[in-house]
């Protein structure tokens, strides 16, 4: 199971994030998770939102460089060492992680990690074999 993630190119200047989040807010889109990868010159804002295709269209129409990427989200027990177990499984299968970010949800209080890997199916399969299930958007509330 994969989740749609929005990636948005942001220039390194004041007001960029504000503009994007306001635009999504005005469109009635709820942010579930947010992370930023950055260099000295620019950043890539990654979002998991309530309605990815609507958010994509909103941002694209506003002229942003935006893309949709399938990422894996897994549920973690909120205990020490829990992320490590997942990482060890992926490392054992020689799966490289491009990036990941983790967060705790508001309602369930569960912890989740979002992974970006080269091959989602292979990663999901090896995680499942080790008893780590990937979750869908519905769970991330």
């Amino acid at each position: 199971m994969t989740i749609d993630q929005l990636s948005i190119f942001v220039e390194n200047k004041p007001g960029q994030l504000l503009e994007i989040t306001e635009m999504l807010g005005n469109a009635g889109i709820d942010l579930r998770a947010l992370s930023i990868g950055d260099t000295a010159e620019f950043g890539v804002l990654r979002l998991i939102v309530s309605d990815a295709s609507k958010a994509f269209a909103t941002l694209r129409d506003a002229g942003f460089a935006v893309s949709l990427t399938q990422v894996l989200a897994v549920s973690l027990t909120d205990t020490p060492g829990s992320l490590g177990r997942t990482l060890r499984v992926l490392a054992g299968a020689n799966i490289n992680i491009e990036y990941l970010y983790a967060f705790v949800t508001r309602k369930s209080g569960g912890a989740y990690a979002v992974f970006r890997v080269e091959n989602n199916d292979a990663a999901a399969a090896v995680l499942e074999k080790n008893g780590i299930a990937s979750v869908g958007l519905d769970e991330l509330v």
């Binding site: 260099t39 620019f42 890539v44 990427t69």
Partner: peptide
Amino acid sequence: ELTPEMFSDTVKQISRRE
């Protein structure tokens, strides 16, 4: 200007383009 088509989600890919 980056074109929307050439943008993906990783910093690595954009740095390589640069």
